[in-house]
Structures are given as structure tokens and as C-alpha cells.
């Protein structure tokens, strides 16, 4: 791994006196699955919000390399992080366009490309053939991911009426329709049953294998994390306490302490 997809260096996020993320550095490799784990309140979601432009970090840098360009994410406008640096994300509490159909959700994800194809609306308004082709392509891409997610027969239903597990899958499909270089998933397995969780594992491995998308995920479900991650970053109280392969992290005493608590009885025993 000579050139990481994403290099986070000394990232710090303060809210008033509270330091939610404290000088965290790590790398994310392209075409690999990196997991961020840690107890509740460790700063995982804050880290995600910095990466995807919803918070402006207090200090530190996040450099993403995509298509041969280097992007300093900490200096970019929120929407450009997706549109140019090609970072896509999902949300812990699902954020679909609930009143719109499944297909419409996936079309909106391809906004930038379709917008250009429609000549910023002017050409689209007069029915320019180039736009029709682009729209058909976009529908095909949506159809592809719907097929992958087992949602094809729900394409014209309202997104808000899907069952919970399907909404999670749709949100991932929507992020993928933006054709990301880096896909950030915030607790994708939360609320899924064991079968759905196993399917999610398969899906993430498929995305990595077939599409070479780098995946960064926050997850509490250790079966997901340990089963599929190539690399794990452990946060506790906003600091990075460990970083390595699943086997290394599992054996790390600092990680065990953070998860089981600083247990004096155990120490005494």
C-alpha cells in the first residue's frame, strides 16, 4: 500500500470545551474494508461528519486521492466532497427521501451527472437526445444496484414504506449510485436480523471485490467487523487506541481494556 485512498492526520474536532475527536490519524486503503470501532461516544460519528463535510474540523487534515487528484477534504464545501472527491455516506438514522419512490431516490443520487447531461436544465427542457440517453443510463445503474439489493420489484414504491432492512439496503444503493471512490457506512448492520446481517457481509465483500470501492464503516456488530474488515481503527474517548488487522486488534490489551472497562478485580485476580 504505497498511496492510501484516504489519509487522516491529527484530526481534531472540538465542541466548545468538549474534544470529540482528538488528534486521530489513520489511513484507508483503496479497495479494502476499514472498520472504525469503539464504545458509544468514542467519536466515531463525529469523525464521519468531519470526513463528509458536515462538520468543519478544528484541526488536522484529511487527504483523499481519487482519479489522480488530491483533495483536502477539510477545506471543501460539503456537497463537493461527494460531487468531486467522490466520498459517499449513509446515516446512522436512515435518511431516505421518504415521500419519493425508490427509483427516484437512486436518480437523485446521480444528480451531478444528469444535471450536466441536461445542460443544466436547458437542454433537458427541449428533450435533448443526449439527456434521454444519460437518463436511461442512470436508470440502468439504478436497476443494477436494485437487483443487487433485491429491491427491483419495489422500485416504484415509496421509500418510506419499505421495511427497515430494505431501507438500509436502499440507502447503501443510493450512496453507490453516486459512484464513490470511498463509501462511508454509519452502522449499516444496526437493527438487522442475523440473516440480513450475513447478507450485508456478502454485499460489502462484493462491492469491494467487483467495484474496487474503498469502504469505511462504523459498526458495533463484531461478527460484521471481524468477519470482513481488512483493517480496524479503534477509538476511545476521541483518541485512537489501536490500529491494525482484526487479529492484531483483537489481541491488543488497550482495546480489551476499553471494551471490558479497567477492571481492577481482573487485574487483582
Amino acid at each position: 500500500m504505497n498511496q492510501p485512498l484516504l489519509a487522516v492526520r491529527d484530526l481534531t474536532m472540538r465542541f466548545g470545551g468538549l474534544v470529540a475527536v482528538d488528534r486521530v490519524s489513520f489511513d484507508v486503503a483503496g479497495g479494502a474494508i476499514t472498520a472504525v470501532i469503539g464504545p458509544n461516544g468514542a467519536g466515531k460519528t463525529t469523525l464521519f461528519n468531519c470526513l463528509t463535510g458536515f462538520y468543519r474540523p478544528s484541526a488536522g487534515s484529511m487527504t483523499l486521492v481519487a482519479d489522480g487528484h488530491r483533495y483536502a477534504l477539510e477545506r471543501m464545501q460539503g456537497h463537493r466532497i461527494n460531487a468531486q472527491a467522490r466520498v459517499a455516506r449513509t446515516f446512522q438514522n436512515i435518511r431516505l427521501f421518504a415521500g419519493m419512490t425508490v427509483l427516484e431516490n437512486l436518480m437523485i443520487a446521480q444528480h451531478g451527472r444528469l444535471m450536466r447531461a441536461s445542460g443544466y436544465t436547458f437542454l433537458g427542457l427541449i428533450g435533448w437526445p443526449g439527456y434521454r440517453r444519460a437518463e436511461a443510463d442512470a436508470v440502468e445503474r439504478a436497476r443494477y444496484w436494485l437487483g443487487r439489493m433485491n429491491l427491483e420489484d419495489r422500485a416504484d414504491d415509496l421509500a418510506g414504506q419499505l421495511p427497515y432492512g430494505a431501507q438500509r439496503r436502499l440507502e447503501i444503493a443510493r450512496a453507490l449510485c453516486t459512484q464513490p471512490a470511498l463509501l462511508c457506512l454509519d452502522e449499516p448492520a444496526a437493527g438487522l436480523n442475523p440473516r440480513e446481517s450475513a447478507e450485508l457481509n456478502e454485499l460489502l465483500l462484493f462491492i469491494r471485490r467487483e467495484h474496487g470501492v474503498g469502504i469505511l464503516l462504523i459498526e458495533h456488530d463484531m461478527s460484521v467487523v471481524m468477519g470482513i474488515s481488512d483493517h480496524i481503527v479503534v477509538l476511545d474517548y476521541g483518541r485512537k487506541i489501536a490500529d491494525g488487522t482484526p487479529a492484531e486488534v483483537r489481541a491488543d490489551p488497550a482495546v480489551i481494556r476499553a471494551y471490558l472497562g479497567e477492571d481492577e478485580e481482573q487485574g487483582a485476580a
Partner: peptide, 28 residues
């Protein structure tokens, strides 16, 4: 017509969820 073009869909998406829009590269 505009409602069926990307700009119109982006308007409606904005009404539904602005934050999701931004995460999909839409300039709010």
C-alpha cells in the same frame, strides 16, 4: 417538465431531506 428533470427531483429531495441531499453532492 422540470419536475421530471434532475433539477426538479433535486427540489423535491431538498424538501424531503436537506442533509441527505448534501451527502449526495447536491449544492443546497
Amino acid at each position: 417538465r422540470m419536475r421530471k428533470l434532475p433539477v426538479g427531483r433535486a427540489w423535491e429531495a431538498l424538501r424531503e431531506d436537506e442533509i441527505a441531499c448534501q451527502s449526495l453532492g447536491i449544492n443546497r
